[in-house]
Amino acid sequence: MSNIFPKSANKLPLQIVIYLVVLVGLATAGVTYYMTPKYTRVGYAPVQPVPYSHALHVGQLGLDCRYCHSNIEQSGYANLPTAQTCMNCHSMVKKDSPLLAVVRKSYETGESVPWVQIHQTPDYVYFNHAVHVNRGVSCVECHGKINEMEVVSHQKSLSMGFCLDCHRNPEAHVREKADIFNLDSPTIATKSGTEAGVKFVHDWKIKPPQSCTGCHR
């Protein structure tokens, strides 16, 4: 009787097990790399109805975020500006530019400019801008260097882990009140050392929620 299986088949079960381990490892790496917000969201930069540039208006002209996102200190929602806000200047500067046709039409008729929302948390998450901005957290922590962007793109993952990284140790992320809208400013910790950050968090009684009900209410 001849051998049906060659001798090397004895090693096969072991080789299959090793292969499966490699495969599961690869699959895990693939899922963590490709199925988390760092891949799915970061870099999202939709085509906007008006090619508005933060790099020009904020970086070059030096406008403050609050000139346009004017309710951010009172409201949980960061409002986009009205068409009139643009017309404050564009009724005199570049007043016939074809790029601004949508804005002029909106100003005249009262129709909305169809801006596309970029950052969006799922509806089961409660997020509030005012509590962050008034308590020493700058826009740059969550949105990146908007003042250098020609087109706004999603820069941070805004995943639960991202929120918690800061909520667990805010002292590394807080800024002086005067620096919050200046996206190039350093944090207190980089400017005057970690102790200064810890002291600020203590003096201001900053206690970001870490319990589930803080953000899932």
Binding site: Y34, P37, K38, Y39, T40, R41, G43, Y44, A45, P46
Partner: peptide
């Protein structure tokens, strides 16, 4: 096919 992290894209993000 999927590229590396950090590329720019204009389609709404995929929901996993």
């Amino acid at each position: 096919v999927f590229g590396l992290r950090g590329r720019h894209f204009t389609q709404p993000p995929i929901e996993v």
